[in-house]
Computed example of a mutant assay.
Amino acid sequence: MGIEINEYIEMGRFNSKEAGYYVLEHDAPSPDEQEIIESIPFMQGVYDFSMLLGEKVFDNRKLTVKLYRPLTSYEERKRLEQEAKEQLILNEVSAITDSWLDGCHWLGKCTSVIAEDDQSRNVLILTITFDCYPFALKDAAGYTDEFDVDYFVDGVDQWTGFFVKGQRNILLINEGVNATSPIITATGKMQLITDDGESLDIQKGQNQDLFFKLKRGENHLTIIGSGHIRFITETEVMV
């Protein structure tokens, strides 16, 4: 009886567990920070402007997974190598399910599939590299209102969709590690006002203003108008 496969990686049609691979190695180092450090003439030391927008900014991170498939014939090894490359390399940027993560997934693309064929042991080893968004994304997206009524979501217990008649004060909690720009859908024209006095015009249908962000933690908003409004975004976490 073989050892049960518990860990796996999945992207598109490729699922390492279903294909019979064991995970030998898993490496997802923290992403590099985009630093802006300047030296000013006649001033002591240097100035770090990396937090100019109020939060750190990171480059993409590299995820590397080494897979091991034992007791595999030569013809089967050739087929599996070709199949893995076709299923992974041709994918665009999409969700990557990683059993190493708990309740989260990566967003990225596969950049490399390197195969090692061990004829003496009938073993196929694949080293797969992904270029990923620096943060992992929670599987339970915050602020989603699937049924067009007020209801709770996993994570933070909060309303995510709101019926508005005239004016309504609402609270949205961004449980992620940084500010995020939500997709806002509305059944009619509305106006959104933040607790800082910032105003945003909401049109009927789907809206997303990349300059409007839900800050980390509590966001007290005022909605003016009539109809239904909902907020859709993904919670980012650093792992």
Score class of each variant (00 low, 15 high):
residue 5 I to D: 04
residue 5 I to S: 03
residue 7 E to L: 10
residue 9 I to H: 02
residue 10 E to Q: 15
residue 11 M to H: 04
residue 12 G to D: 01
residue 12 G to A: 03
residue 13 R to Y: 10
residue 14 F to H: 01
residue 15 N to M: 03
residue 16 S to H: 02
residue 18 E to P: 08
residue 20 G to Y: 00
residue 20 G to W: 00
residue 22 Y to A: 00
residue 23 V to F: 03
residue 24 L to T: 10
residue 25 E to T: 12
residue 26 H to L: 06
residue 27 D to M: 07
residue 31 P to H: 09
residue 31 P to C: 11
residue 33 E to P: 06
residue 35 E to H: 10
residue 35 E to F: 04
residue 37 I to H: 07
residue 38 E to F: 04
residue 41 P to N: 05
residue 42 F to T: 01
residue 48 D to Y: 06
residue 48 D to P: 07
residue 48 D to F: 07
residue 51 M to W: 08
residue 52 L to G: 02
residue 52 L to F: 07
residue 54 G to S: 08
residue 57 V to T: 15
residue 58 F to D: 06
residue 59 D to Y: 15
residue 60 N to Q: 11
residue 66 K to R: 14
residue 69 R to Y: 05
residue 69 R to S: 10
residue 70 P to H: 01
residue 71 L to H: 09
residue 73 S to F: 05
residue 75 E to L: 13
residue 79 R to N: 11
residue 81 E to C: 08
residue 81 E to D: 09
residue 82 Q to M: 09
residue 83 E to A: 08
residue 84 A to Q: 02
residue 87 Q to Y: 05
residue 94 S to R: 09
residue 95 A to V: 14
residue 97 T to A: 14
residue 97 T to P: 03
residue 100 W to F: 15
residue 100 W to A: 14
residue 102 D to H: 12
residue 103 G to P: 11
residue 103 G to T: 09
residue 103 G to H: 10
residue 111 T to W: 02
residue 116 E to P: 03
residue 119 Q to F: 08
residue 120 S to D: 12
residue 123 V to Q: 01
residue 124 L to C: 02
residue 125 I to S: 13
residue 126 L to Y: 01
residue 127 T to E: 13
residue 127 T to Q: 08
residue 129 T to V: 14
residue 131 D to E: 15
residue 132 C to W: 01
residue 133 Y to Q: 08
residue 138 K to N: 09
residue 139 D to S: 10
residue 142 G to S: 13
residue 144 T to L: 10
residue 144 T to K: 09
residue 144 T to G: 04
residue 149 V to I: 15
residue 149 V to G: 07
residue 149 V to T: 14
residue 150 D to M: 09
residue 153 V to N: 15
residue 154 D to H: 10
residue 161 G to P: 00
residue 162 F to S: 00
residue 166 G to L: 03
residue 166 G to C: 05
residue 168 R to C: 04
residue 169 N to R: 11
residue 171 L to M: 12
residue 172 L to N: 01
residue 173 I to N: 13
residue 173 I to M: 09
residue 174 N to K: 04
residue 174 N to W: 01
residue 180 T to D: 09
residue 183 I to C: 08
residue 185 T to C: 10
residue 186 A to E: 02
residue 187 T to P: 01
residue 192 L to E: 01
residue 193 I to F: 04
residue 197 G to F: 05
residue 199 S to M: 12
residue 202 I to L: 12
residue 202 I to M: 08
residue 203 Q to E: 11
residue 204 K to L: 09
residue 205 G to C: 07
residue 207 N to W: 08
residue 213 K to D: 02
residue 216 R to T: 15
residue 221 L to P: 04
residue 222 T to H: 05
residue 222 T to P: 06
residue 224 I to E: 15
residue 226 S to M: 05
residue 227 G to T: 06
residue 228 H to D: 03
residue 230 R to L: 05
residue 235 T to F: 12
residue 238 M to A: 13
residue 238 M to C: 10
